[in-house]
Amino acid sequence: MDAIRTEALTKDYRVGFWRPRRYLALDSLTLHVRQGEVFGFLGPNGAGKTTTLKLLMQLIYPSSGRAEILGRPVGDVSVKRRLGYLAENPYFYDYLTAEELLQYFAGLFGYSAVERRRRVSQLLDEVGIGAERRLQLRRFSKGMLQRVGIAQAVINDPDVVFFDEPMSGLDPLGRREIRELILRLRDRGCTVFFSSHVLSDAETLCSRVAILAGGRLAAAGDLSEMLAFQARAWELVVTGLSDTVLEKVTTSGQVVRATPLGAQRYALELPLSAAPDRLVTNLVAHGAQLVSLNPIRETLEDFFVRQTGAAPRDRGLEPVAR
């Protein structure tokens, strides 16, 4: 059973009063997220990530299509007991202290008073705000509120947790702590679905990702598979390379770009179609020494830019191109 499953999930809004038009926020999203994985939901601003999360939390209703979490329709209260959710830029009741807010939320899950106190105390320490537990939230910084948000999302020890931009507002130390928390959640079998446009976080944490652009699914799959075979060039690092030889290989088109790294030391970029062994032999014959030869692989950022750049911007209702 998938942890999360959407089938042709679509959301459109009517915009404009006098001449209403349909704005397609999410177009036929079909997505399967396996149990126990950290799934990255990526896309530029306005791609439809938050819309998807709101549909999964039933904060908005789909125009068509359906979604299930843990085999049950979204919105089912029995499933909500097993979920956690951190909204983007969350707001919490600022008249409560961090401890009171978490106690309130824990109460909604039916925990006893003793259990609530135990869990809240443990969680506040875990997210690094144990010392501020009795401070009203109106005195909290953005980063501290984000930590409270993360704590409330995992207050029920969830089986599936949804994070919408979890690193937002956090300093480098905070980001690292939250990354570790996400990995701990994964290690104990929790499915983590996290939406972000910070690709380095996704690259570090996710086993699989989906990329959304213009309300449509641009790509989805195993992150390592997506990037493994996407070598786009070779990088050859040599030393003792004379200017004459460098000019010759550059003008002949064997080398696309030469980046100086020091005296007579260069990083040479070769086209993927080139035969690097022949060039290496040639350069060594002219007195150069080989330092390294590596394929230049596509980063998630390259892949993301390629996918989102190519994705249609039009929010019309034509069929999704896959």
């Binding site: 939390m57 209260v77 029995s78 909500k80 956690g84 969350p90």
Partner: peptide, 10 residues
């Protein structure tokens, strides 16, 4: 938007 966190609870 405090309702987002609240309605995601059971």
């Amino acid at each position: 938007r405090s309702i987002y966190s609240l309605l995601s609870k059971p």
